[in-house]
Design a protein around this nucleic acid. Structure first.
Lengths: 254, 254
DNA sequence: TAGTGGTCTAGACCACTTG
DNA sequence: AAGTGGTCTAGACCACTAT
């Protein structure tokens, strides 16, 4: 619906579909920007905005002097599908579930306060949840919320499937996220809740999410059983949002 | 030098520096686009191009109706630092090393051919390398090259530190990459070369890189010892290049 | 040399946030 | 109501690729 009321997004969606439908062949050349502008009855600037979306997603190349070339089909995954375990699970045809193990209100630890940009001594709401796919536990979620958000979370039933959707109902919008992906080892809680040996390796994603105004809304550490998920990123010489860090070696378990 | 000859990149670099230097404070508001345009003596469009770079990197927010707000300092990591183990290692003050264990020319397997977009039966150059940080093995790199690139690789000494830089000398440019990050278990080769138990968990990054024309130049599977690296990605509701996949469960070892 | 995408300008109008 | 960023247009010139 957001794609409908803005011209360049409409064009982008149409082009994405054309590429996915093989209209230009795989590794085929796209029409020139001027041709597309004429075809869609818009200015070249609008076409370029549309194509910038495709380029960022790794759908097409762009290079001075030559037509754009198809790089691959679009993952076509929305921001929501990435942030919400529930939305993601449904998109792959699985039945998502969630069960709150504990929710405590306590003074935030140093890193939590930094990430949530709270003053020293501020209270945080810390939730521990088990996430399931078709009833099978696959992920442990440890999330810290600032009071403003935590107060809403605290009123949700323990078996609420999607916190994200409920928060959205209350006007909490997720706009930006910073993800760090590495490996961690199961602690006693992880082992008990996921049914794996203590010390087993898990794929870890830590994430800080902010709202449109730039205020942190959550700081989460998710731990997945091996073989359940993989993360993919596209980056290019033009837009690089991915980077490699020296590991902080601050793993919780082990 | 590329940043020098284009106006909006110069402006972006300057703004990035100003943000990092705390000129606007953390979570402070940036000047209006029109103000910046006047200050730099450029059009608003150019300012918007510069700010789009910062936004993509998670440095600032952007939202209709209000000034932009500082989200965080820029990782300031270049595309090269991400693709090249060597460049990355140097940037964190470590001494990179590499030793070729084997290089074989053989008919490509199905997935390799698909990734490199080669016809059935085509030959690939498959390299197995150990990468070290200050002499300590931290990563195993299994890379497939198409003949065009492999022929260059085959002529490099076994202890060549940076393949990327040598390939660049030969006009092979890396422009786009698709990364998949998950977890794998050490096979016999991994265990022997990294000095870890067989079956130990490793952080895996699979990557297909293409040149500016969209032709694949490498397909690589890298396996890192735990605690040596972490990957970070920024994404926003506006630009989402990250996605979550159901794991393909096609791990090599175990 | 012709055609392409990259950069830059100037101006217009609109949707939205904030006081 | 004023100010802000988002969208869109029209046109210009340039750097680069291909033939």
């Amino acid at each position: 619906m957001d794609d409908r009321d803005v011209l360049y997004r409409r064009v982008a969606a149409d082009l994405r579909e054309a590429v996915a439908g093989g209209v230009y062949g795989s590794d085929g050349r796209l029409p020139a920007e001027s041709t597309l502008a004429e075809h869609y009855g818009v200015s070249r600037g609008t076409i370029r905005q549309a194509l910038a979306l495709l380029r960022a997603g790794g759908v097409v190349t762009s290079r001075r002097g030559t037509r754009r070339v198809v790089l691959g089909a679009a993952p076509a995954q929305s921001f929501a599908e990435l942030l919400s375990f529930t939305t993601w699970a449904r998109s792959i045809g699985e039945e998502p579930g969630g069960m709150l193990e504990s929710l405590t209100v306590r003074p935030g630890e140093e890193e939590e306060l930094t990430r949530l940009r709270l003053r020293a001594g501020a209270q945080v709401y810390a939730a521990l949840r088990v996430r399931t796919l078709s009833g099978r536990p696959v992920m442990i979620e440890r999330t810290c919320y600032p009071a403003r958000v935590g107060e809403i979370v605290a009123r949700l039933p323990a078996d609420t499937v999607s916190y994200t959707e409920r928060l959205l109902d209350h006007g909490i919008v997720f706009a930006d996220a910073e993800h760090t992906i590495d490996l961690a080892f199961a602690d006693a809680d992880d082992a008990r809740l996921l049914g794996c040996p203590e010390g087993a390796a898990l794929l870890r994603e830590r994430r800080r999410t902010t709202d449109p105004a730039g205020r942190p809304v959550e700081w989460s550490e998710d731990r997945y059983l091996p073989g359940t998920v993989a993360f993919t990123v596209h980056n290019s010489i033009a837009t690089s949002t991915l980077s490699r860090l020296r590991s902080a070696a601050q793993q919780r378990g082990q």
